[in-house]
Amino acid sequence: MAKDEYILDEQVGYLLRLASQRHAAIFQAMSPEALTAMQFAALIRLGEHGELSQNRLGRLAAMDVATIKGVVDRLRQKDLVEVSPDPDDRRRMLIRLSASARAMLNDLHASGREITTETLAPLSPEERAQFLGLLRRLT
């Protein structure tokens, strides 16, 4: 094998995509309330921070403006979030969990832990900690 040979199976982007696909399949199979990963992240962030502007929610959940708008619209259709104008800036909308979403937060947390456990199942406890630490350094 030549020193400068490019081997796809050794490339970070390819391996990250395979790991991401594995996680996505596990998430889809175990998803609470038929939520997408982005809907799940938005609900968890609202549970952590309370009422947020749509823009701030998008930043906290690592979504761009167009994506968070679509996520919020779909969560509204599912009656999982409520939206109201910001009293300090009527142009800005504030997003908060609905009562039904607040009632399911504990179940969402439990499902998230199960999904993470299943995703990381091939790794030892030490490898899991190391892997998560390395991912944090990359983000």
Rank of each mutant, 00 (worst) to 15 (best):
A2K: 14
A2H: 12
A2P: 08
A2Y: 10
K3G: 07
D4P: 01
Y6Q: 04
I7R: 11
L8M: 12
D9R: 14
Q11S: 14
V12L: 08
G13K: 00
Y14V: 14
Y14T: 15
L16T: 14
Q21R: 15
Q21M: 09
Q21K: 15
Q21S: 14
Q21A: 14
I26F: 07
F27P: 07
Q28D: 14
A29L: 05
P32G: 15
E33Y: 11
A34H: 13
L35Y: 10
L35K: 11
T36A: 12
T36M: 09
A37G: 07
Q39R: 10
A41I: 11
A42I: 12
R45V: 13
L46F: 11
L46V: 12
L46R: 10
E51Q: 10
E51Y: 06
S53C: 11
Q54I: 15
L57M: 09
R59L: 09
R59S: 15
L60V: 13
A62L: 08
A62D: 09
M63R: 07
M63S: 08
D64S: 15
D64E: 15
V65Q: 08
A66S: 12
I68H: 04
V72S: 06
V72C: 05
D73S: 11
R74Q: 13
R76I: 05
R76F: 07
Q77C: 06
Q77E: 14
K78E: 05
V81W: 01
E82W: 03
S84G: 09
S84K: 11
D86A: 10
R90T: 10
R91I: 09
R91F: 08
R92I: 15
I95G: 00
I95A: 03
R96S: 13
A99L: 00
A99C: 03
S100E: 04
S100W: 01
A103I: 02
M104N: 08
N106D: 13
N106K: 09
L108P: 02
L108F: 06
L108W: 04
H109E: 04
H109V: 12
R113Y: 01
E114P: 00
E114G: 05
I115G: 04
T116A: 04
T116V: 05
T116E: 02
T119L: 03
L120I: 01
A121F: 00
L123N: 00
L123M: 01
S124M: 02
P125H: 02
E126H: 09
E127K: 00
E127W: 02
R128K: 09
R128L: 02
F131T: 01
F131G: 03
L132K: 06
L132I: 07
L135A: 07
L135H: 03
T139G: 02
T139I: 07
